[in-house]
């Protein structure tokens, strides 16, 4: 008989810029090594995953990470007193730091996580990518950070147009002239603050890898994908698993050298002369992770087993040519459910 774990998951915002929560939950519900009871943790009361059937067994609203670790931890303690959570999978970049900081406190009340260390999290920031590439001998595009537009005047000569203007967590725009840089800078800082990253535009095909490191240098799972259909927000609406040994080699090396702990998504540009440039390292499971499950690697299941210190075997195979295609659908929701969540903070 399989053990039933209570797993808390964030990121139920299954919108056109989807959080990984819903695909992570779908993966956990298909786990072979355990059964699950899912606790959805949400920031907004219109996150679609709240109202989807067979996703969360129970939903709680939680305070924004910007309110501080203590406030978040207090709410987690309240929820845990009722739910007895075994493991927590945070899925937003912006909340990871809070949960990494609270890792020991969470463990004390029985909630296990399997997150990157703060050092791993900090050094792979987009803003630190050049030094990261140098330290771990990885090809990365040239980039500089700016905290105001006067800074930009000083570095403008270092880059050829077009180049990318990126926010520290999300958003990236290709700028073809200085006016565009100013526009994108203002747009990004209004949303994500500073710094803003100016990054060399590397021409080629974007490929992505979802991977899981055990914190000791071993790769527990890795599946590469190429986006086939991209939304106007740059998100994959369709993708296909590919066979690319070099891509897997880069992933294994990165995990071995950094002793990466937890889920990650590598965003890589493969140039026409077969060079691979890492453009981003996202320190969490990506929203397309269910493709990896479909291709034979249940990475969220393995992550939970790592968090709970259960024995696991690394995945070594996956099927190539597996595709995912997203779709949107209207859920009809009774006002009472919305009311209950809005008033009570749980559903």
């Amino acid at each position: 008989m399989k053990h039933t774990y209570t797993i808390a998951v964030t990121g139920l915002n299954n919108t056109d810029n989807p959080g990984p929560g819903v695909p992570v939950i779908r993966a956990l519900r298909e786990a072979k090594s355990f059964d699950v009871r899912i606790i959805g943790l949400v920031y907004e009361n219109l996150e679609p995953g709240i109202y989807m059937t067979n996703i969360a067994d129970k939903v709680y609203q939680v305070p924004y990470p910007s309110m501080g670790s203590d406030v978040v931890l207090e709410r987690m303690k309240e929820i845990n007193a009722v739910e007895k959570i075994d493991a927590l999978i945070p899925n937003f970049d912006a909340e990871l730091f809070t949960f990494m900081k609270a890792e020991k406190e969470l463990a004390k009340i029985g909630i296990r996580t399997f997150l990157p260390t703060i050092q791993q999290f900090e050094e792979r920031h987009k803003a630190n990518l050049p030094s990261y590439g140098k330290k771990y001998n990885l090809d990365v595009p040239a980039s500089e950070t700016i905290a105001n537009l006067t800074n930009f005047d000083r570095i403008e000569d270092k880059f050829d147009y077009p180049f990318l203007v990126k926010g520290k967590f999300y958003d990236a725009y290709a700028a073809y002239n200085k006016d565009q840089v100013m526009g994108f800078y203002n747009k990004i800082t209004a949303k994500w603050g500073v710094p803003v990253i100016i990054q060399e535009f590397v021409k080629g095909t974007e490929v992505n890898v979802v991977a899981l490191g055990d914190g000791k240098g071993n790769t527990i799972g890795a599946v590469p994908m190429r986006k086939q259909y991209i939304t106007d927000k740059g998100k994959a609406w369709g993708g296909i698993t590919i066979a690319d040994d070099k891509l897997l080699e880069i992933t294994h090396q990165l995990i071995a050298k950094t002793k990466w702990r937890g889920g990650m998504e590598l965003e890589i540009i493969k140039t026409h002369d077969n060079k691979y440039y890492i453009i981003e390292i996202n320190p969490r499971i990506p929203a397309w992770v269910y493709l990896a499950v479909g291709a034979g690697q249940n990475i969220p299941e393995a992550l939970v087993n790592l968090a709970l210190e259960n024995p696991i075997k690394p995945y070594t195979h996956y099927q190539t040519g597996k595709m995912f295609i997203r779709y949107s659908q209207d859920l009809i929701v009774d006002l009472e459910l919305f009311e209950k969540l809005s008033i009570n903070g749980e559903l």
């Binding site: 095909t205 994908m225 190429r226 086939q228 993708g239 296909i240 698993t241 590919i242 066979a243 690319d244 190539t320 040519g321």
Partner: peptide, 16 residues
């Protein structure tokens, strides 16, 4: 590893 089906559908698994 390039696959071709009887219907003439060819797939390159390296690039997708």
């Amino acid at each position: 590893n390039v696959a071709i089906s009887e219907t003439g559908f060819m797939f390159n698994p390296n690039t997708g």
